[in-house]
Design a protein around this nucleic acid. Structure first.
Length: 640
RNA sequence: GCCCCCUUAGCUCAGUCGGCAGAGCACAGCCAUGGUAAGGCUGGUGUCGUCGGUUCGAUUCCGACAGGGGGCUCCA
């Protein structure tokens, strides 16, 4: 007999030589059906693995996160098999499970490329493999055997050689999974018992990807797919993708007449139309008012500067490929600014500073220009002319920690005002290559950590992921459909104060180096605009809506009353428009609703005499609402 | 920058197995005055992304380029 411990702490006795599948079956039929793998003493293994005496064993089911991972990875193997069937001699690299699916990287004979039509052929072949219900048979090989088995697969050889060098935690063997005489793939596992367990998948797209993510190494053909434990889960996923497409800010930008990207201007350079411009102004006005209350000073700096400034700042040394090319003028070389910080530092340095005026908080909506590679542009989310809501805070060493805590609280408060509530932060610490002193890094990192603890939001620590000049906090938000976006960033710059030889006079009458905090709250106004547009699916909250109320007279002879209602709302500070009765009422309601106007107000005979309006809002429809009641409701929604 | 896909009316798209193109919405005019998501009739609209090649003839086939989308890489 073999005795194993289940996750709930109970023991179970099984005949000697029992496998994970036997265990699942002994617990229940449902579990046996849903099982795809097991975890034995914390290590994932195949369902067919023999259970050792005394082990702790957990059955992994298809619908769990780990189970989906196994399904997806197994589906990736089926993909590789289908590709090698259709393109004999194809080389394959890696095929991991990823969020929502999997991919596999290939190199086709003769450098051929996959087309979209190929995806259909491959998917058809995959379905045949699933129908054949081929077993996934695990094989253990020595490194030498592995090298010989995969002698025609250079990418696999590189992986095996990596294992040999100790990257595989000292293993001197490699494992492979064989489906039939023709197909065997190097893999750590685990896999589902057989291909018949798969089937709820779809190949999504083909893309190029560099081997090991290195653009100097060969470019491979990557196929992406999605895979789920049931038809319903797959369909739900595809439905979510459709939903995301409906929310696409580029589509909404056109439908709601907010902005566009004229090809005449160039990629990544949007123009905002009147309604988009108004939303943007409302965002900026609110932001400015809050910054003013929080003790910021407003500065303005130009878009160009001489090369010497960016030599001093180090941007030309470190960031040249991200900058627009230089312009020669009267013997000097000018660059469009890629960042605002050097200019703000010059404001600081315009005279001698005393500790008494610190912290000095300089704020600007500063438009910077970055030469983003054409392939990375992505609507408003990635542009080449970026308006940062940028501030630089200069403070004494003693002020650093309290300032950062206040700052993070301020950032979160403003984000909440825009309807974003679900935050996750990331604290990035000192990388291997860095500038400055370790004590400064430690102090800055501790202060950032303390700010996160004070704010009480969830955060992860990304060890060594900081910029070479600064540890930082990145704030991510989740939008209405659960997607994660990086917005705000707070960085403690450990380089620029040095490079610009910044100083202040302390209480001791000595000269000291200030600390410098960079921070952007929206990140970029354009990007934040795009995120908000997708978050709200175009239906901005009332205070941000370009048109807050539409007044619709039922017939022409109600137009005079409608105009009085509109005037009354306008006096109360509501952005209101009237849709005259030259079309049917239903048509005009539809039009206003499609424009996402939060309050559609219908006035007719009843209202004329009673001084009321019909209110069709996002929460429902009401008839005969007294105008004064409506004004009261609206007043509460005109501010964030 | 690299790979795949796309580009036909203001928008969404159909179409021509090579013979100068179409539907809905939008727009304009007229009629309809209608209590909550498309009333009716009439009408105009296109260098079929650009340039080149093949052809008697190219929007259609081929190539290059441009713009857009999805990825990769990058994001001091």
């Amino acid at each position: 007999m073999t005795t194993v411990t289940l996750p709930d702490g109970s023991n179970r006795e099984l005949p000697a030589g029992s496998t994970g599948a036997d265990l699942a079956a002994s617990i229940g039929r449902g579990l046996a059906k849903a099982a795809v793998a097991v975890r034995i003493d914390g290590r994932e293994a195949d369902l067919g693995a023999v259970l050792p005496e005394g082990a702790t064993v957990e059955v992994i089911t298809a619908g769990s996160a780990e189970g989906r991972h196994v399904l997806r990875h197994s589906t990736a193997h089926v993909l590789a098999q289908a590709v090698t069937d259709l393109w004999p001699g194809a080389r394959f690299a890696i095929g991991p499970a990823i969020e929502d699916g999997f991919y596999y990287d290939f190199e086709l004979p003769g450098g051929a490329h996959f087309s979209d039509d190929d995806l259909e052929r491959i998917e058809a072949r995959m379905r045949e493999i699933v129908a054949e219900d081929q077993p996934f048979v695990r094989e253990e090989h020595t490194v030498e055997e592995g090298l010989s088995l995969f002698s025609d697969q250079p990418y696999k050889l590189e992986i095996i050689n990596g294992v040999d060098r100790g990257e595989g935690a000292g293993d001197s063997t490699v494992s492979a999974y064989r489906n039939n005489d023709r197909f065997v793939d190097l893999c750590r596992g685990p896999h589902v018992p057989s291909t018949g367990r798969l089937g709820h998948f779809k190949l999504m797209k083909v893309a190029a990807a560099y081997w090991r993510g290195d653009e100097h190494r060969p470019q491979l053909q990557r196929i992406y797919g999605t895979a789920w434990e049931s038809k319903a889960a797959l369909e739900e996923h595809l439905r979510r993708l459709e939903e995301a497409e409906k929310r696409d800010h580029r589509r909404l930008g056109a439908e709601l007449d907010l902005f566009h990207f004229p090809p005449e201007i160039g990629g990544g350079l949007p123009v905002f139309h009147p309604k988009g411009g108004l939303v943007r102004k409302l965002m900026e006005d609110y932001s400015k008012a809050e910054h003013e209350k929080a003790g910021y000073d407003f500065v303005w700096t130009p878009h160009l500067a001489k090369s010497t400034l960016f030599e001093t700042s180090g941007h030309l040394e470190w960031y040249r490929e991200g900058m627009y090319p230089p312009m020669e003028m009267e013997g000097a070389t000018y660059y469009p600014k890629p960042m605002n910080c050097p200019m703000h530092i010059l404001v600081y340095k315009s005279r001698q500073r005393s500790y008494r005026e610190l912290p000095l908080r300089l704020f600007e909506f500063g438009t910077v220009y970055r030469f983003e590679r054409s392939g990375v542009l992505n609507g408003l989310l990635r542009v080449r002319g970026i308006t940062q809501d940028d501030a630089h805070i200069f403070c004494t060493p003693e002020q650093l920690s309290p300032e950062l805590s206040d700052l993070l609280g301020f950032v979160l408060r403003i984000l909440r005002a825009f309807g974003l509530e679900d935050f996750e932060a990331e604290l990035s610490t000192r990388p291997d290559k860095f500038v400055g002193e370790i004590e400064d890094w430690d102090k800055a990192t501790d202060s950032l950590r303390q700010a996160l603890d004070t704010a009480g939001i969830a955060y992860a620590v990304a060890e060594g992921e900081g910029a070479f000049y600064a540890p930082k906090i990145d704030v991510h938000v989740r939008d209405a459909i659960g997607r994660r976006w990086q917005v705000s960033t707070l960085q403690v710059d450990l380089q620029e104060p040095q490079r610009f030889d910044m100083e202040f006079v302390g209480a001791d009458n000595g000269r000291h180096r200030p600390y410098m905090i960079h921070r952007a709250l929206f990140g970029s106004v354009e990007r934040f605009f795009g995120i908000l547009l997708e978050h709200y699916a175009g239906a901005f909250p009332t205070w941000l809506s370009p048109v807050q109320a539409s007044v619709l007279p039922v017939r022409s002879d109600h137009e005079e009353y409608a105009a009085r209602v509109a005037a009354r709302l306008r006096e109360a500070g509501v952005r209101v428009e009237m849709l005259a009765a030259d079309e049917q009422l239903g048509y005009r309601v539809r039009k206003a609703k499609q424009e996402k106007v939060p309050y559609v107000l219908v006035v007719g005979d009843q209202d004329l005499h009673a001084g009321t309006v019909g209110v069709n809002s996002r929460t429902g429809e009401e008839r005969g609402v007294p105008l004064e009641d409506l004004l009261g409701r609206l007043a509460a929604e005109l501010r964030p």
